[in-house]
Design a protein around this nucleic acid. Sequence first.
DNA 1: CTATGTTTAAGCAGGG
DNA 2: CCCTGCTTAAACATAG
Length: 458
Amino acid sequence: MLSAVKMEGHDHADWSGYYGDAEGYSSFGSLTAGGLGMTTMGGYMSAPPGMSGLPGGGGMAGSPVNVSYMNPGGGGVSHHHHAVPGMSPGTGAMHAMGAAAGGMMSAGGGSTSPLGAQSASMNALTPYGGVSVMSPVYGGHQANLGRAREPPKSYRRSYTHAKPPYSYISLITMALQQSGSKMLTLNEIYQWIMDLFPFYRQNQQRWQNSIRHSLSFNDCFIKVPRSSDKPGKGSFWALHPDSGNMFENGCYLRRQKRFKCEIKVCKEPAAGGKPSCEAGAVASCTDSRGAGTESPQVHASPVKETKRAAAAAASESKPLRAHEVSTTSPARLPSPALQTHQLFAHHHHPHHHPNHPHSVLVHDAHTAGQLKPEHHPLHHHYSFNHPFSINNLMSEQQSHQQHRMDLRTYDQVMGYGYGSTAGSGALCMGPKASFDGSTPADTSYYQGVYSRPVMNST
DNA sequence: CTATGTTTAAGCAGGG
DNA sequence: CCCTGCTTAAACATAG
């Protein structure tokens, strides 16, 4: 069915319409444009709008989102109660923006200091910030439909129904990145996603299966065993330290290349001692596309061994069982800092030209080692920020988290993305959503939602 | 049992 | 056309 995300550009018109009516969502008004907005767009704009031409309407520049969605108190607030400490709704105030201003703060937190991450970083306190706490959003309009599907067909479904333009991997990554501890349990990941994207309040079985699959299947995610103190069901999931900026382009639509790690860490005993493990275990992580990068130093961190080892090739090798990281304590996360910045910080590298692929690596010296410099052949222009960049989300989100007030959900955030018809959408994607109408089956599911990042090259 | 995790496999789309 | 990334579906396996 639907394949990945893809949405080709198109009629924004339609979308605009949606918005118009959108029930409610309309409020994009204020927003924080500042930081992110700019950021984001900045680079992007340049991009040729191949797509549909963006109308300029709204102004991308700043328009963002905002919204006030929250209903404090009320009702719907947390449906889930997981551990989050949530605060109570209402609190706040709105300062949310501050953060934005900083512009990526995001990174900030994490990057700053590793540990800091936890402590310092923004509030991060909980493993998952408190996002969940609020999720009012959806409440309003769609909420009722709590159920999923219904035949909406109509357009007016707001974007809420629209599938977010992020791949599951992106979503997971975002969730992980934004969490204070940089690691989350499966369930927390689910919650984060649902809180932020109403779309995922539907058909949970379906997408959650996909999430699980993504976690297990992709080497970029590692399982961190729960320390004893926290009882609970599954383990924590974190980003592989070397996964680097998988979405360096800032666009979480599709990774340039997949992070693959060959190493097999044979955890100690190598349970069963599978031949596959090489003692030395050098970790070479590569991306699929091109050359692999070997990481010289893998942090001590135990990398998960290759999940599907040779998958295609050698069929016989059986998977070792040791996936988990030997982490001892969660405390030691896989360098949070590292990833963090990689992801968030958009390196400022001015986009390297496609021609110079290598240029980049240099920039990030720090990360240099591990990141994979590769540079995708593909990414032509996209550079760092993207409308869909998590930065946008994150920023906003974080801010909210911090303040825990209104979290803006995807809609909101995206508001400018899509919504604005204007522009932003155009930048990265063209909205097309077919949501709905088309799918007989489910509803809002629209197949593709994303558009490609600016690449219109083709 | 259910929540988690792993895997395999099919199909689609983007891109070279 | 082929390779790669992603999404789904599903069968299993395991842990709480």
